[in-house]
Amino acid sequence: MTMTESNGTGYLRGCPESQDSQLTAHDRDEIFIAVEDLTYIYNHDKAGGHRALSGIDLAVKAGEFLVVAGPNGSGKSTLARHFNAMLKPSGGRVIVAGMDTMIPENAWEIRRRVGMVFQNPDNQIVSSLVEEDAAFGAENLGLPSEEVKKRVEETLRLIGLSQYAKHAPHLLSGGQKQKLAIAGVLVMRPSCLVLDEPTSMLDPAGRVELMETLIRLNRTMQVTVVLVTHFMEEAVLADRVVVLSDGRIAVSGSPARVFAEVELLAELGLKLPAALEIAHGLRKRGFSLPQEILTMDDILAYLKNN
């Protein structure tokens, strides 16, 4: 994550110097997704239902970059699927942009605003032509073909896939396929992107590239991003981290606050990002490092002056 670390962290941690004027138009404290006392039980109707989420309270602010982490089976995907009304709460409620996901009539409006990207890029590509696939969402909105064409061109350019517009998706690399999946939802001009482990099948370069894309979208276009991931190096780049365990929120807050819970994270079997692990080890040896250290760049900056 070399490049993202040096470019992206300032904004993502809310440092005011990199905020541009556009953002003030957007109320930073406006809540985009409100989750209230959410419980979800798989196969609720049948005996032996499985409680995957219990009593989740969470508010995703507009323009925020939120990471959801947690061990396998902790309920991350289940939670993410509530954000675009693919799943409906068994208890409690989820309000997206003011709309209750329980009301079937809202589903379509919600999905237009919340774009969802999944782990396996292969299973979300519908067409055997890149530009046709990018167009699918916009076509479903019933936009005139000129508008669809314009949006597809714009989006492919934004994502950096323009030169592949006429290619077959199976000829793209994993990282490119995942970018195509993002383009496929961006044509609907959503205000929020929800991504479920989008980098887990990518190589290092693909991973870095995808994170850069997300950070750019979040920064320059004020897209709210919810990223489900196992990679803690990605989590430190977020505004806020929510850690799930066994269907409940174990800890949530700024990366600094969450990663300060060293014992809790160890108990959950999660790993600290390498920079924090090093900083933690150094403190144990009796060095007094500043508490704000999160990324490799922070360590670097500290060591530079000492």
Binding site: M1, T2, D203, P204, A205, G206, V208, E233, P273, A274, A275, I278, M296, I299, L300, L303, K304
Partner: peptide, 17 residues
């Protein structure tokens, strides 16, 4: 398109400094 392990990356940058 590959990378170093994160700790190696850090040490390398220190060296560059």
């Amino acid at each position: 398109g590959l990378d170093l392990p994160a700790p190696a990356r850090l040490i390398r940058q220190l060296r560059l400094l």
